[in-house]
Design a protein around this nucleic acid. Structure first.
Lengths: 364, 364
DNA sequence: TTGTATGCGTTATCAA
DNA sequence: TTGATAACGCATACAA
């Protein structure tokens, strides 16, 4: 129950509205005695300033916007859940709210920016993906609207390109590299790579890590034969795995959990018992397939996978945005905490799992 | 590019602000000639009214709030993605925005309501789950805040209870009932039920459908032996399926895709080839396991599953909310379209799939 | 340090 | 039918 206004509180307290406003926005400007008295009254009355009135005056909505993509692939898309939750939580504890919207295309997304900026006065946007030659970052950049991207900027050729806007990304290559090293440690040498055939920069990045690690281990000559591409589905993973197996691969690193799941299914059928606990396919007693994104499916099936630190990415993105917005005024006066890195590449980590012992081999 | 205000537009046009406002909010009150002239100017200038100013005046934010739950189980939680997307889309096309927030408990959720109501002036809330003796619906109801729930009201005993607030739910019992009928048609008679052991009303509802259909088919005497409960995980599904199989079940209906996936894995191991295309386990050539929720995992693996019409539920919820809010003013003056059902139980449908042909049996 | 006046962009009331 | 005036709740420049 609040239903209180600055004016009503002020008259009840016998002070001016201005004093209360100062207690809230510039506590140092008011005498400690009255400050405490006012603060107590605020708490007692449960008074909370109206965001709308504040926005009208300050031109800040304390509100970020984010486009919600349709859930195309729930297996790989599952990490967006975690990202969104962490984002909401971080925004909330920074005093910001999060507004969702939909768009059918990037152009439509830009139109929504324009609309939301005008109508709702959003303070900034979070982009959950980046593309070569991104129309959205161009538009926002030109206009000077604060934003931060989950995803590196790519140039038209699909290479990582420098850009001056804030972004956070996960180093996919480092992830696959570590996965390969793990498999090498387990005694594998013919380690295949099972990637998307979309030609996306993200996919190329993940493949590069595999190439680096294999080359460093002296297996550079196998790159042509052990690198395979397939449609990013379970079925694609199965057929890709069959091809890799026929070429002698004893282990494989995949670009997604969908592919890895398909590969696992395939190998399990071709080699019954291969994934049962205690009857490993690999030389050193571990599952020989590694997925990407560490989705719940991987966890459920005991599939090793490269885990992205999406919660950390989300928190950093909010930090970036709040810093930029606070910076306009507060950064100068207070020392302002160490500014967050404007470009940040986070390292993923490989989650090693042993496939579920669903059954004992059974007689015969 | 807008950066226009009512005043600036008015002076450019040589009319008063009020006229423009009327063109927007009460077009019938302005002479057609000027109306069109103003409308053209609005379009040309790309003018959009400020939501904050509007809110200050009208006390309506055109904004709904929804708590985002942490993604506990990404397999079963995947349908919330679809729900959220549909919700956002529906809200957007109704002229509302959607604000997300987090809470650690229902009590905390209520505190967030209070806060968001005071500071952001949210017009209503969407609840994505219901519980027996729900503190949140009580609070919102008492206060008279508009809200709608995805989930039936349950009484303390876990039975469906009448309540006067708007809600939408999916008829789980109808779903499992249809699944059983499908399996009966395929020639199965020993059809097991694999449910959660959480004692949740939702789980009990799903079980009831199985019981109804089995009883109707004359298999009522098998209910005790063929109804099994397990932890809602893949591992739980595997062990539950083993138990059911040992009791002679040739088919099973599960409370979730997690359970179904575990069951499928288990049966595949116990009976290699059981799920390969052309080598079905069931009498009539179809997979004998049905999951619930039709998650992407089920789709990927070719698992039959009961699909909830979450998009429809989302749209209906927005309809409920917008109707209630519009009703306060507009319902009386205009005829107001047919009001949406305040309580709606949607029927799910069984998606029948054939498990992926991952491999041909292979030599020997 | 505290109070006074003004304006943020809109809609509602009332007179013309 | 149209236009002037006030008010929504807050923050800020300025005066006291």
């Amino acid at each position: 129950m609040s239903r209180h206004t600055l004016a009503s509180l002020a008259s009840e307290l016998g002070v001016s509205r201005q004093t209360i406003s100062n207690v809230l926005n510039a506590p140092h400007k008011v005498k400690p005695a009255t400050r405490e008295r006012v603060q107590a009254a605020i708490a007692a009355a449960g008074y909370r300033p109206s965001a709308a009135a504040r926005q009208l005056r300050t031109q800040r909505s304390m509100n970020f916007g984010m486009r919600l993509f349709p859930a195309t692939d729930g297996i790989n898309g599952a990490i967006l859940d975690r990202f969104l939750h962490a984002l909401t939580e971080a925004a909330q504890s920074a005093g910001y709210r999060l507004t969702l919207f939909c768009a059918d295309s990037d152009e439509e997304e830009v139109r929504q920016y324009e609309q939301l900026l005008d109508v709702a006065g959003l303070d900034g946007f979070i982009l959950t993906s980046s593309r070569p030659d991104d129309v959205r970052t161009h538009w926002l950049g030109e206009r000077g609207t604060p934003f931060a991207v989950f995803g590196r900027p790519w140039d038209a050729a699909g290479h990582s390109a420098p850009a001056d806007h804030p972004w956070v990304d996960v180093d996919g290559a480092a992830g696959t590299e570590e996965a390969v090293r793990m498999l090498l440690t387990q005694g594998h040498s013919r380690i295949g790579f099972l990637g998307w055939h979309t030609g996306s920069p993200v996919g190329a990045d993940r493949r590069q890590g595999w190439e680096r690690a294999m080359t460093a281990a002296g297996h550079g000559q196998d790159l042509h034969v052990l690198g395979v591409e397939a449609e990013d589905t379970v079925a694609g993973g199965a057929s890709g795995a069959a091809l890799l197996a026929s070429r002698g691969a004893t282990a494989m690193v995949c670009s997604s959990d969908s592919l890895a799941l398909g590969a696992m299914e395939k190998l399990r059928e071709a080699q019954p018992g291969a994934f049962l606990s205690g009857q490993p396919a690999g030389p050193a007693g571990r599952a020989a397939i590694v997925g990407f994104d560490d989705t719940p499916v991987a966890a459920a099936l005991g599939l090793s996978s490269v885990a992205q630190p999406v919660e950390e990415a989300a928190r950093h993105i909010i930090g970036l945005l709040t810093h930029e917005l606070a910076g306009k005024a507060a950064a100068a006066r207070s020392g302002a905490g160490a500014p967050p890195a404007r470009q940040l590449l986070l390292a993923p980590r490989v989650v090693e799992r042993i496939p579920l012992p669903l059954a004992s081999p059974g007689p015969s």
